[in-house]
Design a protein around this nucleic acid. Structure first.
Length: 955
RNA sequence: GCCGGAGUGGCGGAAUGGUAGACGCACACGACUCAAAAUCGUGUAUCGCAAGGUGUGAGAGUUCGAGUCUCUCCUCCGGCACCA
C-alpha cells in the first residue's frame, strides 16, 4: 500500500459510517454483562472546548471501546448541564435569552466532540434545561418536600452582592463567591433549604463502607474521600451545661450549654465564651454592668465581613460580660463569662468552655486578656529508641526536675553523654523543693553557681522509659524549670570526671541535638510553645487524676457533670433557592397566608416562562416575581403566588446519570427494571474540583432516592477517577484571559483526531496535571505513520512476533488500570520491534490494530478494512494473550559483585543457579572481580540477577 | 495548624525490593538532498583520557541489594481551618 496517511480523509469518513450503522447504540440486553461508563457532562460556556476538556472524555472513550470489544454491553452517554449563573451571565452579555444562547453553545460543543470520534450514544443525550428533563428534577424536589427534607427558613445566609443571589456554603471559597470572587455578605432572608445534614452520617460512613466481598463500596481516590470527610466534618463530644449566676449572689439566672470535644479538660476551664449572636446574650445584657461596652462590641462584630471575622492572623477580640459568672459543674468554681467573635454562632452550641492550657485559641485569648491558665492534662511521653520501656520488669517511680538553662547569648545548655544528648536534670531528693533540686543539679553537673530560676514551665510532665543504669523501667513525674545563667563563674563539677560534657547551643538548634524519641525533645517543644493540646495524664482533676485522657474519660467526665454525648457536623443544610431567572422553577405556590402548597405531580413540569427581561434584582427577590402574569393567579376567588426563586445550578446534575438509563420516559424518572439493569455507574470520570459539591449533592440525592425506592443502590458512582488538568505550555490555566488557549479543532486539523487522542493519553499519568506541548502530538502522529507503513509489510506466512502476547497483556491491563501512558508506550515498543522484523504476520497486525483501536479508532478501522476484514473493528473481539507465550526464550541476567552490577549476560531461560555461577566465573570481564575461593555468598534471583558476595578485604 | 498526594536527565515521564532513566519530546552528528523539510541511522544523567567513581529533594536506618520499605527533616501541589 503506497497511499499516504491522511486523517482528513479517513476520520470524517468513518465518523459518518459509524453513525449510519449505529454501532454505538446501546440497548438493555441480558446476554452480556453491563458496563456503565460516564463523563461528568459539560457546562457549555460561550468559549467552546479547549484541548484540556476532552482529556477525560478520551479516557472514557478508550475504556468503553475496550470493554465493548471485551464483550460488555456498554453505556457511554453524553449530555449537557446548562442551567445556572454562567449561562445566564453569558446571555445577558449577548443580549439574548439564555435558552437561545444555550442551544447555540450546545450545538458548538457537540460539533467539537464529534470530530474527536467519540463513541457516545447520542440518542440518550440529556439536557438539564429541557422541560422534559427538569420535570423530574422538580419531581425530586416535591418528594423531598413531602418527606420533610425541603423547607423554607428565615435566617442569615450568604449573599453575593455582585451575582445578586443567595448562595450555599459549598459555593463559597475563602469567604468569597466562588463564581465572581465578590466578598459575600450575611443577609437575613427567607429561603429554601434541603436538609442534607440529616444524611451527614451516611454520607460519611459510606465513604468507608465495604461490600460483602470486603472490597470498598466506593473505589474513589483517597483525596476526594478525604475532602468529603473534611467537608462533612464530624466530631463527637459533649454538651455540658454551665449555670450562669449574678455576680456576688448565688442567683441562677440562666444556663449556657457549651459543646466540647475535650470534656477531659473540664477541670481546666477558666472562663466561658458566648458567640455575639448567641440567643442568651440579649437576656444577659440586662444583668450586666457594662451593657454599653457589650453593645458596642456586638455592633462592631456585625460590621465585620466573614473574611475579617474568621481571619486567624488578626488579633482576637472580646468583651467580658461583667456582672454574670458561670459555674463549672465539675468543681463548682466560678469563672467569668466573655463574649467574643472567635466563637462561631452556627457551630456546636455557639458557646464554648475555654481551657487556655490545652487549646491554642483559648490560650491566645487568655494571654491577651490576662485570664488564668490552668493545666489539667499533663504530657505523657513513652521513651523511644533504646529507652523503650520493657515488658515484665519492675517500674520505679521518681520525681525529677528538668532544667532549661539559658545564658545571656540565648543559648541553652545541653548534656552530651556517650549514647545520648539531653537537657540537664535529676531526681528530687527527700524534702527538697524542685527549684532547690534545679540549682543543686546545675551546680553538681556543670559547676555553675550564679544561676537564677526564672519560671516553672510545667508542674507535671510524665515519662516512662527504660533505664540502663538501673536495669529497670522508670515512671517519672518531671518538673520543668527555666533558669538563667547570671555569670560564667564555674566551680569544680562532675564534668571534670569526664562522664559527659556540656554544650551551649543556640535556642533554635536545641531540637536538632536531642533525639526526637526522648522526652526532653517534647519538653523543649513545650518550652518554646508552652501549651499542650494533645492527650496525656489528667492532673488537678479530683478523682480523675492519673487517668489517661481518652474518649472513655471524656465520656466519664461528661456523665459525671450531667452532660450529653453528642455528634456535630460542619456540614450545613443546602441553601437551595437562587434569586435568579435561569434555573428550574421551584414547583410550589403560596396562598394568601403564605402557606406553601406543592404542585401536583401531573402539573409538572412547571416551565420557566420565556421573557425578555430577566436581569437579577437587588431586592432579594427573583426576577420571576416581576412577571405577575406568570407568578400570580386566582382560583375560585383565592389568590395564589408562585414561588419565584429557582433552583441552584447543581440541581440538575445531582441525578442526571439516572436519566441516561431511560432518557425518554415520560411517566417515571427512570424505569425500575432499567435502573436495576444498569445499577450504578461503574466508572465516573471528571475533575477533582467537584469533590465537595456535585459529588456530595449527587450522593445525597441518590441516598434519598434509595430511601423512597426509586433506585436500588446505595451509591451512584462505584469507581471515580479524576483527570489531571492540562495547563498551557506556560504552566498557567488555559484561558482566553491569558491568550494561551489551544483549540482542539486546530489540533485535529493539523494532526488528526487520532494523533491528538493518543497524545492526551500519552502525556503522563492520567490523574496528574501536565502542561500542553504541541511537539508531543508530532510524536504520536509519527507513531501512527509507523503503524500505517507497517501494514505494507504484512504477509500471511510471517511468524508471530515473540513480544505480541506480552504487549497484549500490558495494554489490556494498563487500560483497565487507567495507565494509558504506559499502554501506549508498550505499543510503541512493539511497533519499533515489528519495524525491525523482515515481515509482519497478518494476525500480529490485526492484534496490534485492535489494541490501538480504543485510542485511535479511525486509523485502526481504516487499516482493519485494508487488511480485508468485514465489519467494524470496534465490534470485533479484544485480543487475548497466551500465558505460556509471555516469556522470551533468552533472558538477561545482571551479574552483581557485592550488590554492584558489573556485567550482564544473555542466557537461556530457566537456567539453574550453579550453571549461571559457573558462567559468571568463566566470564572474561568478571575475572578481575572474582578470585577463586573468595565467594562468600551467592544471591540468585531466577532469570534476573546473580549477586556474588566477595570478601575483597582478604587481598 | 490538621489531613491527603508528590519530589527521578534539558523536558513529559518509566521502573512486582533486583541492570535507574523504558517510551516520547528536544538536542547533536551522520545518510538521503542543489538545499531545506520530512524520513532513516547513531548518540545523549554526571565526573574521568581510561580503569572506574557518583547519581532518584536532604539525612539516617533495615537489606546481599533501596527510586521503591522505616524514621526525621525540607520543598511543592490539593483539601479543611478561630468547627471548640
Amino acid at each position: 500500500m503506497t497511499r499516504q496517511y491522511d486523517p482528513k480523509d479517513i476520520e470524517p469518513k468513518w465518523q459518518k459510517a459509524w453513525e449510519k450503522q449505529g454501532i454505538y447504540a446501546t440497548k438493555e440486553t441480558a446476554d452480556k454483562p453491563k458496563y456503565y461508563v460516564l463523563d461528568m457532562f459539560p457546562y457549555p460556556s460561550g468559549e467552546g472546548l479547549h484541548v484540556g476538556h476532552p482529556k477525560g472524555y478520551i479516557a472514557t472513550d478508550v475504556i468503553s471501546r475496550m470493554k465493548r470489544m471485551q464483550g460488555f454491553n456498554v453505556l457511554h452517554p453524553m449530555g449537557f448541564d446548562a442551567f445556572g449563573l454562567p449561562a445566564e451571565q453569558y446571555a445577558i452579555k449577548m443580549k439574548t435569552n439564555p435558552a437561545v444562547a444555550v442551544e447555540k453553545n450546545v450545538a458548538r460543543y457537540k460539533k467539537q466532540l464529534e470530530i474527536l470520534g467519540f463513541d457516545y450514544d447520542w440518542s440518550r443525550e440529556v439536557n438539564t434545561t429541557d422541560p422534559k428533563y427538569y420535570k423530574w428534577t422538580q419531581w425530586i424536589f416535591l418528594k423531598l418536600l413531602e418527606k420533610g427534607l425541603a423547607e423554607e427558613r428565615y435566617e442569615p445566609i450568604n449573599w453575593c452582592p455582585v451575582d445578586k443571589t443567595g448562595l450555599a456554603n459549598e459555593d463559597i471559597e475563602d469567604g468569597k463567591c466562588e463564581r465572581c470572587g465578590a466578598v459575600v455578605e450575611k443577609r437575613l432572608m427567607k429561603q429554601w433549604v434541603l436538609k442534607i445534614t440529616q444524611y451527614a452520617d451516611r454520607l460519611l460512613s459510606d465513604l468507608d463502607a465495604k461490600k460483602e466481598d470486603g472490597t470498598p463500596l466506593l473505589d474513589w481516590p483517597e483525596s476526594i474521600k478525604e475532602s468529603q470527610r473534611n467537608w462533612i466534618g464530624r466530631s463527637e463530644g459533649a454538651e455540658i451545661d454551665f449555670k450562669l449566676i449574678e455576680a456576688g449572689s448565688k442567683n441562677e439566672i440562666a444556663c449556657a450549654t457549651v459543646f466540647t470535644t475535650r470534656a477531659d479538660t473540664l477541670f481546666g476551664v477558666t472562663y466561658v465564651v458566648l458567640a455575639p449572636e448567641h440567643s442568651l446574650v440579649a437576656e444577659l445584657l440586662e444583668k450586666s454592668s457594662n451593657k454599653k461596652e457589650i453593645e458596642a462590641y456586638i455592633s462592631m462584630t456585625k460590621a465585620k465581613t466573614e473574611i475579617d471575622r474568621t481571619d486567624t492572623t488578626k488579633e482576637k477580640t472580646g468583651v467580658e460580660l461583667k456582672g454574670v459568672r458561670a459555674i463549672n459543674p465539675a468543681n463548682n468554681e466560678e469563672v467569668p463569662v466573655w463574649i467574643a467573635d472567635y466563637v462561631l454562632a452556627d457551630y456546636g452550641t455557639g458557646a464554648v468552655m475555654a481551657v487556655p492550657a490545652h487549646d491554642e485559641r483559648d490560650f491566645v485569648f487568655a494571654k491577651k486578656f490576662a485570664l488564668p491558665i490552668k493545666h489539667v492534662v499533663a504530657p505523657y511521653h513513652i521513651q523511644g529508641g533504646k529507652h523503650v520501656p520493657r515488658e515484665g520488669i519492675e517500674t520505679l517511680t521518681r520525681r525529677t526536675v528538668t532544667v532549661i538553662l539559658e545564658n545571656k547569648k540565648n543559648e541553652v545548655l545541653i548534656i552530651a553523654e556517650p549514647d545520648t544528648t539531653t537537657l540537664l536534670g535529676g531526681g528530687i531528693e527527700e524534702g527538697e523543693m524542685p527549684t532547690e533540686t534545679a540549682l543543686r543539679e546545675i551546680k553538681e553537673e556543670t559547676g555553675y553557681a550564679d544561676v537564677e530560676v526564672k519560671e516553672t514551665i510545667l508542674d507535671n510532665f510524665f515519662a516512662k522509659g527504660y533505664r540502663y543504669t538501673k536495669g529497670k523501667n522508670t515512671f517519672t513525674n518531671d518538673y520543668i524549670i527555666h533558669a538563667v545563667l547570671k555569670s560564667d563563674t564555674q566551680e569544680k563539677s562532675e564534668i571534670d570526671e569526664g562522664r559527659h560534657h556540656i554544650k551551649w547551643v543556640p535556642k533554635e538548634n536545641v531540637l536538632n541535638e536531642i533525639p526526637h524519641t526522648h522526652s526532653h525533645y517534647e519538653i523543649f517543644k513545650l518550652f518554646l510553645k508552652p501549651h499542650h493540646t494533645g492527650d496525656g495524664l489528667l492532673v488537678n482533676s479530683c478523682s480523675f487524676d492519673g487517668k489517661n485522657s481518652s474518649d472513655e474519660v471524656r465520656k466519664e467526665i461528661t456523665k459525671h457533670v450531667g452532660g450529653r454525648w453528642v455528634t456535630k457536623y460542619k456540614l450545613r443544610d443546602w441553601v437551595f433557592s437562587r434569586q435568579r431567572y435561569w434555573g428550574e422553577p421551584i414547583p410550589v405556590v403560596h396562598d394568601e397566608n403564605g402557606l406553601v402548597i406543592p404542585l401536583k405531580e401531573e402539573d409538572l413540569p412547571l416551565e420557566l416562562p420565556m421573557v425578555e427581561h430577566y436581569e437579577p434584582t437587588d431586592t432579594g427577590e427573583s426576577p420571576l416575581a416581576n412577571i405577575p402574569e406568570w407568578a400570580e393567579f386566582e382560583v375560585d376567588g383565592y389568590k395564589f403566588k408562585r414561588e419565584t426563586n429557582t433552583m441552584p445550578q447543581w440541581a440538575g446534575s445531582s441525578w442526571y446519570y439516572l436519566r441516561y438509563m431511560d432518557p425518554h420516559n415520560d411517566t417515571t424518572l427512570v424505569d425500575s427494571e432499567k435502573e436495576k439493569y444498569w445499577n450504578s455507574v461503574d466508572l465516573y470520570v471528571g475533575g477533582a474540583e467537584h469533590a465537595t459539591r456535585h459529588l456530595i449533592y449527587a450522593r445525597f440525592w441518590h441516598k434519598f432516592l434509595y430511601d423512597i425506592g426509586v433506585v436500588s443502590t446505595l451509591e451512584p458512582f462505584t469507581k471515580l477517577a479524576n483527570q489531571g488538568l492540562i495547563t498551557a505550555s506556560d504552566g498557567r490555566k488555559m484561558s482566553k484571559r491569558w491568550g494561551n488557549v489551544v483549540n482542539p479543532d486546530e489540533m485535529v486539523d493539523t494532526f488528526g483526531a487520532d494523533s491528538m487522542r493518543l497524545y492526551e493519553m500519552f502525556m503522563g499519568p492520567f490523574d496528574q496535571a501536565i502542561a500542553w506541548n504541541t511537539n508531543g502530538v508530532v510524536g504520536t502522529r509519527r507513531f501512527i505513520e509507523k503503524v500505517w507503513k507497517l501494514s505494507s509489510k504484512v504477509t500471511h506466512d510471517a511468524p508471530s512476533h515473540p513480544a505480541l502476547h506480552r504487549t497484549i497483556k500490558k495494554v489490556s491491563e494498563d487500560i483497565a488500570g487507567m495507565k494509558f501512558n504506559t499502554a501506549i508506550s508498550s505499543m510503541m515498543i512493539f511497533v519499533n520491534d515489528l519495524e525491525k522484523a523482515a515481515s509482519v504476520s497478518c494476525a500480529d497486525m490485526e492484534a496490534l490494530l485492535k489494541l490501538l483501536a480504543p485510542f485511535a479508532p479511525h486509523v485502526a478501522e481504516e487499516l482493519w478494512e485494508v487488511l480485508g476484514n468485514e465489519g467494524s473493528i470496534h465490534l470485533s473481539s479484544w485480543p487475548t494473550f497466551d500465558t505460556s507465550k509471555l516469556e522470551e526464550d533468552e533472558v538477561t541476567i545482571a551479574v552483581q559483585i557485592n550488590g554492584k552490577t558489573r556485567e550482564t549476560m544473555r542466557v537461556a531461560r530457566n537456567l539453574d543457579e550453579q550453571v549461571v555461577v559457573d558462567m559468571a566465573k568463566g566470564s572474561e570481564g568478571l575475572k578481575k572481580w572474582i578470585k577463586e575461593g573468595q565467594i562468600k555468598r551467592v544471591i540468585w534471583v531466577k532469570n534476573r540477577l546473580l549477586n556474588l558476595i566477595i570478601d575483597l578485604s582478604a587481598e
